[in-house]
Design a protein around this nucleic acid. Structure first.
Lengths: 201, 201
DNA sequence: CGAAGTATACTCACCAGTGAATATACTTCA
DNA sequence: TGAAGTATATTCACTGGTGAGTATACTTCG
């Protein structure tokens, strides 16, 4: 394999990741990214066909790691289902207290590209969020197998709404307490659904 | 009094409103805004000291009208408290189905300016969201005066989280159904809180 | 007149993307 | 084996265009 190729490509992606996340998509130029990666802009264009292409690659690179992080948090938590869900939000609160935290990269990119609904990066972002929602629904159904599929889907969606709401409001207020409030709300909703599910059984 | 002054200023603000909301902050240049307002860029700089200043004015101009809209929806709804809250979300769903809808201007601006936490526009955005949250809390306390202040505040925050979550997820998925799901969740949470409050009384 | 408001015409920096050349490694076959 | 050819990977220097912001002059009205 060509070592140089993947090397430069990786360095570009790493630089793009940091800069796009820290500063925003349109705020960062390819010159800046190239400089940070220690290569020439032309080399960026060798590995990515356009800035839009690089934006897409940036989100693609964040997809799995992000989902993995949520899974890790969820699985590491002990306790009942409502508590495990709440733990996700507590971890987000903790992350959000780091000064470099700037919200959810997918959400912020979607906000910036709201005028380009067909942009490839938008599709990646939507798919990422769908995966999270689907995973939550699975977990709800798996737990004791008492929850009906449509109930699990509704509940997963409610959790997603609280999660993305937390990302957004924390960014606006720079106050991680919103994640804890969202976690409380999620816990209440999940507990309620679990209660209804087991009652029906 | 100079007709021209207010006239030009208003035209600039109107153009900025449409363009910033439709395309995003950094995607729109002052040249474009000036052209849309039918004046020169220099005139823009006569009325606003910088682009940042205009961004701030853009959000200021949206503050009251937006809050007023929510109040109107809420007050026009009949039924119990949970239903009135849900109606806000239903109205958002309806708005979001219009093709020109591009999410919440405050949230999207906050996402774009996430790298400038001290930006005046960020403060305007945060204040706007706080006003909404405070208003919700008031409404919860006012309703029958059975809800304790801290409970009302917590509940208001949960509603805010669902609201901003709805704005964000609709934008990502281009699917207004998320607002309806958020409305359901909000109704459940409010009904639960109302139930606990009246039980305690 | 003179001040508020607007316009013309500019500066200077930056940005997405490109043309031409080069260096390095891999492949082929005499 | 090794020379010639080809694909990969990278650089330097550039273009056409646009960005925010400005110097200066014109206009209009109290």
């Amino acid at each position: 394999m060509k070592r140089p190729s993947s090397n430069a490509r990786d360095r570009i992606l790493t630089a793009a990741n940091k800069l796009f996340y820290a500063e925003g998509i349109r705020a960062v130029s390819l010159d800046t990214i190239a400089a940070k990666a220690g290569i020439t802009k032309k080399t960026v264009y060798y590995h990515f066909k356009s800035k839009d292409d690089l934006i897409e690659a940036y989100l693609v690179s964040r997809d799995q790691p992000n989902l993995e992080l949520f899974r890790t948090w969820f699985e590491a938590a002990d306790g009942a289902l409502p508590d495990k869900v709440q733990v996700i939000f507590q971890n987000i609160a903790a992350s959000a207290r780091h000064p470099k935290w700037k919200g959810c990269g997918f959400l912020r990119t979607a906000a910036e590209l709201a005028n380009m609904p067909g942009h490839p990066a938008m599709k990646v972002g939507a798919a990422h969020k769908k995966k999270f929602e689907a995973w939550m629904a699975e977990e709800f159904q798996a737990e004791g197998a008492e929850m009906a599929p449509d109930m699990a889907c509704d509940l997963a969606r409610h959790v997603v709404l609280l999660l993305d709401g937390a990302f957004s409001t924390i960014l606006v207020h720079r106050d991680a307490a919103y994640a804890e409030a969202a976690g409380e709300a999620a816990r209440v909703l999940v507990a309620g659904a679990v209660g209804r599910a087991s009652q029906r059984a």
